[in-house]
């Protein structure tokens, strides 16, 4: 088995474990058992748990970046929808990260720094998407300077903390529909007639 395959196997196993038990409760032995490799073999690839968490985080960010790269070119309504679907899927896949973001950030300061940049980049993308939709007539213009900037921040705040919020509120729905409803509701007040029509179409399709 090639080295990259083993690495991926370890990563997948780690994600499984973390999702099940939370980062703090997992030791290297657990991951090794899950991946069916020896601890020695694993430490050859990843020095310690921190290294694994880092690797997972990098994969996660890479996936998010790919999503946004697609999104950046032409953020029509169906592209926003597609972004939502994949973001939701990503959150389900890497549950542990989203359920415990704040804790992970506190425990891994360098991830925190990198993540900070990543978040601000995401926010920028969303602001640009709002501007794009305004210029094509689907959104109303800003009522006051900076409204779209705040809209973009709200969007990522709600999206990133979705699972966290569910957990705090003891809300057990895992359906995509409620996630989607909440985020689209942010945009709805900005829809022009054209925007509303497009949104109706999107809902029926």
């Amino acid at each position: 088995m090639s080295s990259t395959l083993t690495r991926q196997k370890i990563i997948d196993a780690a994600v499984q474990c973390f999702n099940r038990e939370g980062i703090a409760n997992i030791r290297l032995q657990h991951i090794a058992d899950e991946a069916v490799v020896s601890v020695g073999n694993m430490t050859y690839h990843y020095r310690n748990k921190d290294a694994i968490v880092h690797a997972i985080w990098e994969q996660l960010v890479q996936k998010q970046r790919d999503l946004l790269a697609e999104f950046r070119i032409l953020p029509l309504f169906e592209d926003i929808e597609r972004l939502l679907v994949s973001t939701f899927a990503l959150q389900q896949q890497y549950r542990f990260f989203y359920v415990d973001t704040l804790e992970v950030m506190r425990a891994f300061p360098d991830i925190q720094t990198a993540h900070r940049q990543h978040i601000s980049w995401q926010v920028q993308q969303m602001e640009m998407a709002a501007q794009f939709n305004q210029s094509r007539g689907a959104f109303y213009a800003e009522k006051w300077e900076g409204q779209y900037a705040i809209l973009a921040k709200q969007f990522w705040l709600l999206a990133d903390l979705w699972m966290y919020r569910q957990n705090v509120q003891n809300d057990t729905t895992t359906e995509y529909e409620s996630f989607r409803l909440m985020l689209w509701a942010l945009f709805q007040p900005f829809f022009t007639d054209m925007g509303s029509r497009e949104f109706e179409q999107l809902k029926t399709s």
Binding site: T101, L102, L157, Y164, R165
Partner: peptide
């Protein structure tokens, strides 16, 4: 129907999580 329930959730999320996520973003 339901729009204001969703709005409530959004406002709530902002009030509760805004401070920690700002700290996170430094």
């Amino acid at each position: 129907p339901g729009v204001y329930d969703t709005l409530t959730n959004s406002i709530w999320t902002t009030i509760v999580f805004w401070v920690p996520q700002q700290v996170l973003k430094d």
